[in-house]
């Protein structure tokens, strides 16, 4: 079992009307690995995430999760087998409280949805978990606050709490640091370093501090192809990457 990669992408290709977005993308994440996925805007990072989490179907190629082919599965099924994701655009339920948002995540995870007509307030079995999940990301004091009244940094932490609360084997984060201040970004790095545990991480991020701090390995996408793959040190030394992605003239 341990030899099977948590996530394996085989020859993924995807085109939209305007042309190819991804071509022949192969990617393998070992269990517990933390992988950064970087590349210029339009490189196909979010498209790749959507193919992994089920929002988009690839034109060709296959997605394997823990050895199981999941190419045609819908997003909710992929969540149920252990893939959790956040979205580039914060997708929290703003008119609900922090507690209600976490309940939504835990409700499904704990299978309590089978009694959908039961009062939402009587969720005693998961109330402790809700509190714990909030505590874990430092939101224990604002459980009753409406989410859209919270500062952006806190909302982002709640976003991550929703993903982590479901204990996914694979965590896919799409630009979690976008829009955060310097201090909030450092909090985010701390949070992920301490709370991810042995979960496998796929992290798309523009902020290179975040990528270098969190990644064991980094994959660079450019024009829909894998340009380079290696340790953070290898990637930062790679002249192709420096030229294409970091905008430096290597000539």
């Amino acid at each position: 079992m341990s030899e099977l990669p948590t996530l394996h992408l085989s020859r993924i290709a995807k085109s939209f009307g305007s042309g190819p977005v991804l071509q022949d993308v192969n990617l393998s994440l070992q269990s517990g690995e933390r992988r950064g996925l970087i590349g210029p805007n339009g490189a196909g990072k979010t498209t790749l995430i959507n193919i992994i989490t089920g929002g988009l179907a690839p034109d060709s190629g296959d997605v394997f999760f823990q050895g199981q082919r999941i190419t045609g599965l819908s997003p909710y099924r992929r969540n149920r087998i252990g893939i959790g994701r956040s979205f580039q655009i914060l997708s929290l339920f703003g008119e609900m409280t922090v507690r209600e948002n976490l309940r939504n995540a835990l409700l499904r995870h704990r299978g309590l949805h089978v009694l959908p007509w039961r009062a939402a307030a009587r969720l005693a079995p998961i109330e402790d978990e809700v509190a714990q999940a909030a505590e874990l990301v430092g939101l224990g004091d604002v459980l009753k606050a409406r989410v859209d009244t919270l500062p952006y940094g806190m909302q982002r932490r709640l976003d991550i709490a929703l993903v982590l609360a479901q204990e996914p084997a694979l965590v896919v984060l799409d630009e979690p640091a976008a829009g955060l201040s310097g201090a909030e970004t450092r909090d985010l790095i701390d949070l992920l370093q301490t709370r991810l545990g042995d979960r496998t991480l796929l992290l798309v991020e523009h902020d290179m501090d975040v990528v270098y701090s969190l990644s064991d390995r980094i994959t660079v996408l450019d024009y829909g192809r894998v340009l380079a793959e290696g340790s953070p040190a290898e990637i930062s030394a790679n002249s192709d990457v420096r030229r294409v992605y970091l905008g430096e003239d290597a000539a």
Binding site: T53, G54, G55, S74, P75, Y76, N79, R80, G84, R85, F87, S91, L92, F93, G94, E95, M96, E100, R103, N104, A105, L107, R108, H109, H113, P116, A120, L162, Q166
Partner: peptide, 18 residues
């Protein structure tokens, strides 16, 4: 609760396993 959430961000509700 889930229906209200789905009215706002259906993708997120799907990503949470509903």
């Amino acid at each position: 609760m889930v229906v209200r959430a789905a009215a706002v961000y259906p993708e997120m509700v799907g990503a949470l396993g509903f």
